[in-house]
């Protein structure tokens, strides 16, 4: 099972990132994925990032500081 976390304090870019991730997951129709939005700044800081939004897959930061494209997320999820 894969856990995807979206780290962000609720700015428009963070919301867009969440949408992109959801679309990517739907398109791949992965069965076993949980998507979690992390908005608590203290939790966010545990990942040692300095710019949001960020995407974390299985506790590994894969995107930070920008809104990824759908294709990018799909690539990252296939591995």
């Amino acid at each position: 099972m894969k856990t995807i976390k979206i780290l962000g304090t609720g700015c428009p870019n963070c919301k867009r990132t969440t949408e992109v991730v959801q679309q990517a997951v739907e398109e791949l129709s992965l069965p076993d994925v949980s998507i979690e939005k992390v908005e608590d700044i203290m939790k966010i800081m545990e990942y040692d990032i300095m710019s949001t939004p960020a995407v974390v897959i299985d506790e590994r930061v894969v995107i930070k500081g920008r809104v990824p494209s759908k294709g990018e997320i799909m690539e990252l999820l296939k591995v």
Partner: peptide
């Protein structure tokens, strides 16, 4: 570049 919503993580990151 930095968007103002990143100001807190950035601040903490620098301080840390």
């Amino acid at each position: 570049p930095f968007c103002s919503c990143s100001s807190v993580p950035l601040f903490i990151g620098f301080v840390r």
